[in-house]
Amino acid sequence: MEVEDLKANQFINCPPLMPWRQFAVWIGMEDKQQHVRGWCDKGYLPTVRMGRHRMVNVALVVKQLLEQEDF
C-alpha cells in the first residue's frame, strides 16, 4: 500500500489526531509500521508534535483525500 492508495471512506468516525503507530494499524499496515513512520518523516502524511509524540493529523488527511476525489 502507498499513501496514494488511501481513500477518504476509510476515515469515517475517526479522531482528528492519532498516534502514527495507531494510524498504521487503522489503515491495515500494522506489519509495516516503519513505512508509515517514513511517510511521516518525509512529510507525505501531515503530523503534529505533541510533546515527545508525533500524531498524524487525520482531519487534514481526510480533507486532502476528499479534494483529490473531486478531480
Rank of each mutant, 00 (worst) to 15 (best):
E2W: 00
K7C: 05
L65Y: 04
E2D: 15
A59P: 00
D5R: 02
L17I: 14
V36H: 12
P46I: 15
R21T: 12
M29N: 09
G51V: 01
C40I: 10
N9H: 14
A8P: 10
L6F: 01
K63E: 14
M29E: 01
A59Q: 12
Q34M: 03
W20F: 11
P16T: 15
W39D: 02
R54N: 12
L6Q: 03
G43P: 09
L66K: 15
E4N: 05
E67P: 11
T47I: 15
F23A: 06
H35Q: 15
Q34W: 04
D70Y: 03
G38P: 01
D70A: 07
K42N: 06
G51I: 00
F23S: 13
W20N: 02
V58H: 02
K7S: 12
P16I: 14
G38D: 10
F71Y: 14
W20E: 07
W26P: 03
K63N: 15
P19A: 05
A24F: 02
R49G: 09
H35Y: 00
W26T: 14
Q64K: 15
G51K: 09
P46Y: 08
E2A: 02
F23G: 10
E30N: 10
C40K: 11
D70M: 01
E69V: 03
V56C: 09
V25G: 10
A8F: 10
N13E: 09
A8I: 05
L45C: 09
V62A: 00
M55I: 11
D5S: 08
L17D: 01
M18I: 12
L6A: 04
K32Q: 08
Q33H: 07
P19E: 13
V62P: 00
R52P: 12
I12E: 14
E4H: 09
R37Y: 11
I27A: 11
A59C: 01
R49F: 08
K7G: 02
E2F: 03
V62N: 00
P46C: 07
R37M: 06
I27H: 03
W26V: 01
D5C: 02
R52V: 00
D70H: 11
E67G: 15
W26G: 12
G51N: 09
V56A: 06
G43R: 10
Q68F: 06
P16K: 04
E67K: 14
L60I: 14
R52S: 08
C14E: 07
W39L: 04
G28C: 12
D41Q: 12
M1D: 05
L66W: 00
Q10E: 13
K7R: 15
M1Q: 04
F11E: 05
R52L: 00
V48A: 08
R52F: 10
M1R: 13
K32C: 05
M1P: 04
L45G: 08
E30F: 10
N9Y: 10
Q33P: 08
W39N: 07
D31K: 15
E69G: 11
W26N: 12
Q10V: 01
E69H: 09
V61F: 00
E30P: 07
H53E: 13
